[in-house]
Design a protein around this nucleic acid. Sequence first.
DNA 1: GCCAGTCTATACCAAAAGGTATAGACTCAA
DNA 2: TTGAGTCTATACCTTTTGGTATAGACTGGC
Lengths: 192, 192
Amino acid sequence: MKTTGNREQLLTTALQLFAEQGYASVGVQEICSATGVTKPTLYHYFGSKDGLLAAVLEADYPDLLGRLNTGSTYRGDLVQALTGLFTAWFDFVAERPDFVALQLSLIALPRNPGIQAQISPWQKQFRDVLLNLFQAAGPQHGNLIGHEALLASALQGLLQAYALDLLNGSLMRSDDFVYKTVKQYMYGIYVL
Amino acid sequence: MKTTGNREQLLTTALQLFAEQGYASVGVQEICSATGVTKPTLYHYFGSKDGLLAAVLEADYPDLLGRLNTGSTYRGDLVQALTGLFTAWFDFVAERPDFVALQLSLIALPRNPGIQAQISPWQKQFRDVLLNLFQAAGPQHGNLIGHEALLASALQGLLQAYALDLLNGSLMRSDDFVYKTVKQYMYGIYVL
DNA sequence: GCCAGTCTATACCAAAAGGTATAGACTCAA
DNA sequence: TTGAGTCTATACCTTTTGGTATAGACTGGC
């Protein structure tokens, strides 16, 4: 029996199946069969189906948050910071579409307690990245002050909405895609 | 036995449970128990669990689309049309939060074939409403021409993102909420 | 009274769900 | 060599899943 990498292969398979069908629609047996192991192996590593989901999230979220944080660092230029943020996000969406798809499907169930317990802490950190950006830009952009939370909320929704359209193919990432989305976000719909 | 309204009560219960837990997480037995009927009753009216979902969507989508269409009618004033659209949407979100929550949870699974077969036709009509608006505004707003599809796609995502934030309580609908969101959408983030 | 159609409950089905008891194979330190 | 710890498979558990065969109750028209 292949004894190396079973944990990582389970994580990979689970992410893919969860992203395609939704967490609740995938059975642990299906994950094990697709990976080529049996259920005790899965339960040895993750303890439960929920534990498997937690491990899947833990595997990619830190990287995503780090990249968003780095990309959105405010250095006195809001357009530059937003461009960095959008670039980091769209790059991540292109690199790890399965993880983003899973993320979006979990976020869309805000009243499922079990799911929310898993996704909320990560979503909170996501929002904090955006909040930090607007707070850092506050001194030089006084008209944003007091609206940081609203702006972060709307921006997070916008990023996720773009990601969904990219994932289902109804939106294409052209050369100036980031440029246009940042401009539209900052100055409205007339700048396309 | 209560013999009147069982069909409507099943629709109501199913919508509520689907919205809370997600379509896949709810069993037909659970729906029947919560409604106070037995499974043959459900299968008599809807044929299958998928048929029940189809009926749930059919029950509310026409009303939603009609209200969006009416609210967004273009009469030579884009701000007015967008205000009408946003108002119609946010009113609907407030009136039928369960239906909107279900809608969002289904949309977030773009690669689940069974789910997409059910939701796509309605989503297409949703998008067509927005597309019509931008096409009607084209002659007086030449800089929008050629971007109608992109604008409709982004606007649909934005509306759904706001709805999600309203549903999970991270956003509050203040007096000038519609005014501010329309302004921000048209002129950027500096107008709050 | 009777019949057709509509609606519902009892009781059941095979399959799949999440999860586990047990034991065998393997590695590594002592 | 032995023993502890790690990892995996066989075989099994209970509960729930979506779905149904059958039959009874009710309605309306004739």
